[in-house]
Design a binder for these strands. Structure first.
Length: 880
RNA sequence: GGGUGGUUAGCUCAGUUGGUCUAGAGCGUCUGGUUUACACCCAGAAGGUCACAGGUUCGAUUCCUGUACCACCCACCA
């Protein structure tokens, strides 16, 4: 016999082990069944399971279990991510702290540091793997991948090479986002904006003497960058400055630096803001860089880099060289003041670019980097040549890819509209290294010094398998020191994980060969649904679409399901830096069970919307799991007392008995089960997980337990009970796999296997009986009315009473259900007739087509009732 | 500045093609309760002019327009 309460702790790990050992998670590429594939968004290899993962795992496990039970060849491919910058900085910090080494990069060198990071990842990878299992995730561990696997590296190199050949990847000297803390570039999407209170300084840029009239003033929040100016920009229609446009000036800055600037007219200037002029600093502002590019011909002087990679002022900053940006700013302003040029100093709120990774301000600096061109029309898609940008738009616009909820399509398009070339190179060591090799010898031999268009320069080789010697001159080559943005390899995730690792060692094969000869890729790609938080729509979803359509000619997935972010009880974001705001799934699971946690994150939530999670909510679903447990216990006890073996109970026998023979409640139950199957299936197929979960919850608790089981007491049909329970367990299994699998072992038919492999039920028309359902509802309403009246008139709960029911329409029906009404309403004398009659001293309830009366004489003590009412009146008066 | 979402019981939220919504759930509250599983339970109850103002309609929480407040995304360091 089952324990009185369900204990997930003694069950879950055992069940998971059983599943895993049985091979139930394993997908078969040779199968002829329709495939259903989910690529698990790979958690950070060194990470800890948090609620974001938990939501993802719960949702995807529901998709995959449902598909598996529906008879599809279901593959859920798990994996971990090398999380380039994040991991490298964690390990560096660890070494700094534990080994007291200030600069581990300098101390160990590249090879050794990378080895140490790999070692650290290796060690900690096991943690996240076991934590994923804790959630009940039925993923195919035999196909686990890691974004730094050699086979994935092969894919990365192949794609890089293909893009290089197509001219989609190029090296360019540009103003990039430099993270001074992490000492690397970051992409535009890795920037966050924060409003900070700053100062806007207005100063005299050109004197009255220089302009020959009014002095020209410029406003800036970054005076120190003015040392790198080579122009002043004004609006073409601005009459104040029209006479200066095209003229060159010499400016002497504090710090003893002299610069030549040209006054240039450009429409990007807002005449209303500040003085209507901009000091143009091409090397420390992307906007200014663009302006410079537009007016290169007119501008006399070259721009100057005055801030270095270390965040300190460069030699070009004259006396300020070596100072920090902040210090220089202060000195510079003081200098202006001394020169008598400072006109105004006001505070204002300015947006500040912050690195998503280090949370430090981003410094725009000029650098030679690798970029992916998103506008070049060389991608063949649906027989047309398009740019990457256009393909990104096309696949969603044409509904090849659907996003749930669909409003995110708009967000997606908006992002694409603003998309610029993607900077993919990073100055860190942990990651996929740029597969480009340089031969100094050949490069030096070449006289071109044009940095901007150096993509096909001599001595530059892109190699998939690596290169030692230059193919031209035979001298040794050096590999590009940079690594690729972590999203470059993540962008390949849906298919690089399906490439046969045995093939990737064979360099005689090209990318199309690899794709064509990998059975997993052929069977399981494109994947069916990609599920992730909406916060990485741009970072990852869009990148996967970009990289995959280009590299494989296929979309990466058909549907994108975006879940909301988990928030605290107060609606705040849970942040790692403040553990008190976090709910730790690893603490919750032992306490409430993974099943309860899963349901609490799915039911009552809608995709794309944030939701708040707190312990009581999880507790509520723990209670539900326990309710299901106890209902099963009851069914088991019923079987026992009727001497029926639950394993040999025959479901189909019940259904074939013919609906006429079964009692009303049984007919209604059978019929309701068909509705349930239909509705749950429909909801799940439409990815409406909350709806299906809620339906199941309410069916089990409010209908099956509260009414059917109560009605069945005393005249239970064990066969039918077992049949109903089996159906419930099957339908609930995707939501709460552990408890249902455990209970299934007590109820499964003799020849059945584990629940995880049980076929999904199909609703049977012949079991449907709308009349029975309606009739049962009438009976339920009558019983509820009696109970309600009893409570209203404070009838002793244990007292047996008299009840009178008048109903022309339902008299016959109610008569046939007399025993149920009597038992559940605690009625001793029940009179049912079809004619309404007048009664005195009765409590009455009027239902549609039915009246329920309880004679009060004798059941309630009127004197006691008077005292009670008097007291109540008293209380109310006091309250008033 | 551009865009998106939210505003429904004390709290957290469902409500998918406008009429079984005289508006639902969970938690909380109140009144009772050892009834052949379950107190992680059972029975009963209270509690909402579905943000506000217009419009379309026979009829709107549901569609349209506007307003307010709260989130979020994107752009912008003059």
């Amino acid at each position: 016999m089952l324990e009185k309460a369900y204990d997930p702790q003694v069950t879950e790990d055992r069940i998971y082990q059983m599943w895993e050992d049985s091979g139930a998670f394993k997908a078969d590429a040779k199968s002829t069944k329709e495939s259903f594939t989910v690529s698990m968004p790979p958690p950070n290899a060194t990470g800890q399971l948090h609620l974001g993962h938990a939501v993802m795992l719960a949702l995807e496990d529901i998709f995959i279990r449902f598909a598996r039970m529906q008879g599809k060849e279901a593959l859920w491919l798990p994996g971990t991510d090398h999380a380039a910058i994040a991991t490298e900085s964690v390990v560096i910090k660890k070494i700094q702290k534990e080994e007291k080494i200030r600069d581990p990069r300098a101390k160990f060198g590249r090879t050794e540091l990378v080895r140490r990071i790999a070692e650290f990842v290796e060690k900690s990878q096991g943690t996240i793997r076991s934590q994923i299992r804790k959630m009940g995730s039925s993923c195919d561990w035999s196909r686990e991948r890691y974004t730094m696997d050699p086979s994935l590296n092969r894919c990365v190199n192949e794609v890089f090479q293909k893009m290089y050949k197509d001219g989609l990847i190029y090296q360019g000297f540009r103003v990039v986002n430099w993270d001074t803390a992490l000492q690397t570039t970051i992409s535009d999407d890795e920037i966050e904006y924060q409003d900070r209170e700053g100062t806007l300084w207005t100063f005299e840029y050109l004197s009255a003497e220089q302009t020959g009239g009014e002095p020209l003033a410029v406003a800036t929040s970054r005076p120190e960058t003015k040392l790198g100016d080579n122009a002043i920009i004004v609006h073409p229609d601005d009459e104040r400055y029209a006479h200066l446009v095209g003229r060159h000036f010499e400016v002497l800055w504090p710090g003893g630096v002299t610069r030549h600037v040209t006054v240039v007219a450009d429409h990007s200037v807002d005449r209303e803001f500040g003085t209507g002029t901009i000091g143009c600093t091409p090397y420390h502002s992307k906007i200014d860089y663009e302006i410079w590019q537009r007016h290169k011909e007119e501008i006399f002087a070259d721009p100057q880099q005055v801030i270095g990679e270390d965040g300190l002022m460069t030699e070009n900053a004259g006396d300020f060289a070596g100072l920090s940006v902040e210090k220089c700013r202060q000195k510079f302003v003081e200098g202006l003041q001394k020169q008598g040029k400072l006109l105004k100093e006001e505070t204002y709120v300015q947006p500040l670019s912050i690195s998503y990774r280090s949370k430090q301000p981003v410094e725009p600096i000029p650098k030679l980097q690798w970029f992916i061109d998103v506008n070049k029309k060389v991608v063949v898609w649906k027989k047309k040549k398009m740019s990457l940008k256009e393909v990104l738009q096309e696949v969603v616009r044409s509904k090849d890819i659907c996003i749930i909820p669909d409003r995110f399509e708009k967000t997606y398009f908006q992002w694409i509209d603003n998309l610029q070339d993607w900077c993919v190179s990073r100055q860190i060591w942990w990651g996929h290294r740029v597969p480009v090799f340089y031969c100094r010898n050949c490069m030096d031999a070449q006289d071109s010094t044009d940095q901007g268009s150096g993509i096909r320069d001599q001595g530059v080789y892109v190699s998939v398998e690596g290169l030692d010697k230059c193919s031209e001159c035979g001298s040794s080559v050096t590999q590009d020191p940079d690594t690729l943005d972590t999203w470059f390899s993540s962008g390949l995730w849906t298919w690089s994980t399906l490439i046969d690792p045995v093939l990737t060692g064979d360099y005689s094969l090209d990318l199309p060969d690899l794709l064509a000869q990998s059975p997993d890729f052929q069977k399981f790609h494109p994947t069916t649904v990609m599920e992730t938080g909406y916060d990485i729509l741009f970072f990852w979803i869009a990148r996967m679409i970009l990289m995959t359509t280009y590299a494989t000619g296929q979309i990466p997935f058909k549907t994108v399901y975006l879940h909301g972010l988990v928030r605290t009880r107060d609606g705040k974001k849970m942040s790692k830096s403040d553990p008190s705001t976090c709910i730790d799934p690893l603490e919750i699971i032992p306490k409430y069970g993974a099943d309860a946690l899963r349901m609490s994150m799915i039911v009552g939530q809608s995709p794309g919307n944030d939701f708040r999670l707190y312990e009581e909510k999880i507790g509520g679903y723990r209670n539900f799991i326990n309710k299901l447990w106890n209902a099963s216990r009851f069914v088991l006890m019923t079987c026992e007392s009727a001497d029926v073996d639950p394993h040999s109970a025959e479901g189909s026998g019940i259904r074939d008995q013919g609906s006429g023979k079964l009692p009303l409640a049984d007919r209604a139950l059978l019929s309701s089960l068909q509705d349930l199957i239909e509705e749950v299936t429909n909801s799940l197929e439409g990815y409406r997980l909350s709806e299906a979960g809620e339906r199941l919850y309410s069916f089990v608790w409010d209908y099956f337990c509260d009414w059917y089981l109560e009605l069945s007491k005393g005249e239970a049909n064990p066969q039918l009970l077992v049949h109903a329970l089996r159906t419930i367990l099957i339908l609930l299994h995707p939501y709460c796999p552990f408890v249902t699998e455990e209970l299934w072992s007590h109820f499964k038919p003799k020849d059945a296997g584990m629940l995880i492999k049980e076929p999904w039920p199909v609703a049977e028309k012949k079991s449907k009986n709308a009349q029975a359902q309606q009739d049962l509802q009438i009976v339920i309403n009558v019983i509820s009315a009696i109970r309600s009246l009893r409570a209203d008139y404070n009838v002793e709960p244990s007292a047996l009473i008299t009840a009178i029911i008048h109903s022309k329409k339902y008299a016959k029906l109610l008569e046939s259900q007399r025993s149920h009404i009597e038992r559940l309403g605690r009625v001793e004398f029940l009179s049912i007739d079809s004619q309404p009659q007048q009664h005195e001293h009765v409590a009455s309830a009027f239902l549609k087509d039915t009246e329920v009366h309880l004679p009060l004489e004798g059941i309630i003590d009127f004197s006691k009732e008077c005292t009670r009412l008097a007291k109540e009146q008293d209380d109310l008066q006091k309250f008033l």
